[in-house]
Amino acid sequence: MRLIIDRYAYLDSLIHRWQQKYKLVGLISLIFAFSFVQKITLLPVIVVITTVIFCLSNLPLSFLLSRLRYPGWFILAVVILLPFVAGDTIIFQWGWLTLKEEGCWTSILISVRFFCILTISLVLFGTAPFLTSIKAMRSLGLPQVIVDMTLLAYRYLEELGNMLTTMQRAIRLRGFRYQQFSRRNLKILAQLTGSLLVRSYERSNKVYQAMILRGYGYKIPQIDRQQKNRLSQLDKLNFLATSATVIIAISLTIAEILLPAN
C-alpha cells in the first residue's frame, strides 16, 4: 500500500531535482491559488499550468489515470447532479428534468479545479520518496511529535496491513462469510479490529523499549538537524523554480480578484 506512491520517485526530471522542501512551498502555494479560482476564464490558464508541470515531471500518464480511479463516486455524483439542481437559467427541459446553465458552469469549475489540484499533489508527492517529503515538512517547522508519529505510523502501515490480510484469511478458512450482515458478523469484525488493536498495542510497547535503548528522547539530534538545514543550499534551480511557482500563484490570485465576474 505504501510503495505505490514511491514507484516513480527515483526518475530524473527537473521536478525530481527540485529539492522537496522548496517544492512543497512552491506547489502548495499553487494548489491554494487553484482553489481560489472562481472565474471560468481562468480555467484554461490553470489547465495549461498543470499540464506544463506534469510534463516536466516525467511521470507516466498511466500513473495519473490509475490514481484518478480512487476519488470516485462522490465527485461523479456531485458533478452529474449539480447541472440539474443549481441555478435559474434553463437551457434544456425534458419533463421535470431541467438542465440549468449555472449548474453546468459550477460542475465544470469544480471538476477542473479538482483535477488540476489532484495532478499537482501527485507531482508533489510522486516525485520524491515519501520519507523525504516528511523530512522536508519537518524542516518547514512541523512539530516534532507529529513528525515522529507520521514516520512511525508510516513504518508500520504495511506490516499492520499484512497482519490484517492474514487474519482475514484465517477467519475465511474457518468458514466466515463476509457477504452477510448479522449481529454475529458485526461482532466477529469488531473482534478482528480489536485483535489488530491489541497486537498493535503490544508491538508498540516493544517498539518503545527498543527506541529508548537506542537513545530516543535525548535532545542531541536537534543540533544535528539545524546544522543540516544551514548546509542545504538554495541553489539556482531551487530558487528559480520556487520563485516562479510562487509568482504564478500570486498572479492567479490577483487575476481572480481583479477580473470581472462571469
Binding site: M149, T150, L152, Y156, F181, L196, L197, Y201
Partner: peptide
C-alpha cells in the same frame, strides 16, 4: 511521560488506518 505514548499513538494511527479498510457488508 509523553515519549512513551508516541509509539503507542503511532501504531494505533496505523492500525486505525488499516482498520478503516475493513468493509462491513450491508447488502
Amino acid at each position: 511521560n509523553p515519549q512513551k505514548k508516541i509509539p503507542r499513538a503511532s501504531l494505533f494511527t496505523a492500525a486505525f488506518f488499516v482498520a478503516s479498510l475493513i468493509h462491513i457488508p450491508l447488502p
